[in-house]
Design a protein around this nucleic acid. Structure first.
Lengths: 238, 238
DNA sequence: TCTTATTGTTCCAAAATGATACAATAAAAA
DNA sequence: TTTTTATTGTATCATTTTGGAACAATAAGA
């Protein structure tokens, strides 16, 4: 069954850019609708009976299987030219439906963009009944996304780059415990430039948000690095 | 005539926080709907046939008479509890209309917030046919605003405070030519704290975005300050 | 001419950042 | 066991940015 008009708000939707980090590359989740060749960001309509943020969380869960992830609103997109009914028709057709010309889903939509940074390894995205697949794609090698979704990704990247300098958001891309080198790699990948090791280490440690744990013995012939974790207590006492 | 359903998008609206600076205080524009006692931010519905930003600009012009002002999107508000049909009913009643229970304007609305910084003196806001009055109110002495409009103002303030450190937005609140002292006062008022004169002057001048003009002789018994203006050329060559 | 308030600048101290050097080490090689 | 190698954690010093105060330059009134 397709989404019904009276369950959702008209003319407003959400789209999410969900980032993961492989250790080498920054990736995002992209889903492919069945029999349509259409690639899209996980997005959807907004339930009438929920707060915007809750509706988005619920939508993300249905689209990706991901639960309890932190979502941050970053921009709302409302260009006229983003309202093309064709992609929606194609998607519906791929699911075996032929939409009437006056179907509410073919109307103009303004979409609210959210981003999330999650642990690439602790998560197994699951396609739902509408989508063929949901997969990680490198930021530098995305499939052609439908509508203005590429612009949405670009804007999300812009925003996380500036947020990275203020909040320790990079930590969400890593496992609970991580080395300084891994955190530096996250920053370098997002900012797309090399950082000086000593300066980076000093800056992060001076932020006083990390707890130091045991050393990590990798078997390599050199000094073992310490493991760190994000220290919630230190943050709250600020 | 009330706004008609087929001209506007459903469930989405905009609201604007328009800042002005008197020389002493930061103010915003608040309008009062006729015979209703309802105070609100200039806002409205979004025309189906325009880009979001253009629709907002057009709406602002109709509400306030202000033309060609720069608007910056800052947040989209979608809490469930902001959807109370009562205020809209009261406003309609004040205009001599009784809305049916299923009228589209009584439905839930998600609102997109925009802010603008304009020159308090070069502008004469005009009420339109729906509003009784449109007036400047000090940030610290607002009338009770309808719905969640006070939260919207708060968020706008938060955003301009952080933007102030990055972009030279304070300049928009001043006339074409201004003294360093005036610009400092703008920053102090927005940030709500005193700034050191010498440090502020150096920081602003080092940004290399100002053109220096003739001195301003005020008649006071002391050294006359230079006038400055925003230098668009210097910005573009960056 | 002297006084007063304010402005533009300079100067020095303090803090943050950039860049390099170096000691500590984990494990393999000699 | 000792030496070697790569990498990590810090210390150190230079450079840049910022904080804070001092001071000379002035516009106009006393």
């Amino acid at each position: 069954m397709l989404p019904s008009k009276n369950k959702y708000l008209s003319n407003v939707s959400f789209d999410t850019v969900i980032f993961g980090f492989t250790g080498e590359e920054l990736k995002i989740l992209v889903l492919e609708y069945q029999n349509s060749g259409m690639f899209a960001l996980p997005g959807g309509y907004i339930r009438r009976d929920k707060n915007l943020l809750d509706a988005v969380k619920e939508g993300v869960k249905r689209r990706t299987g991901l639960n309890k992830i932190h979502l941050e609103q970053f921009h709302t997109f409302g260009m006229l030219k983003r309202s093309d009914p064709e992609p929606t028709k194609i998607i519906a057709r791929g699911l075996g439906y032929e939409l009437e010309e006056d179907n509410w889903m073919l109307d103009r939509f303004i979409t609210i963009g959210y981003y999330s940074l999650i642990n690439y390894n602790q998560v197994k995205p699951k396609p739902n009944k509408y989508s063929d697949s949901i997969n990680w794609y490198s930021i530098n090698n995305l499939p052609p996304l439908m509508m203005d979704h590429e612009k949405i990704v670009e804007k999300a990247l812009e925003v996380i780059r500036t947020d990275l300098l203020k909040k320790p958001i990079g930590i969400n891309l890593l496992p609970e415990k991580f080395t300084m080198k891994e955190l530096q790699k996250v920053h370098e990948t997002i900012l797309n430039k090399k950082l000086r090791r000593t300066t980076f280490q000093r800056k992060i440690l001076n932020m006083d948000i990390l707890k130091r744990h045991e050393k990590l013995f990798t078997g390599a012939a050199n000094k073992a690095p310490y493991l760190y974790s994000f220290d919630k207590d230190k943050i709250e006492n600020t």
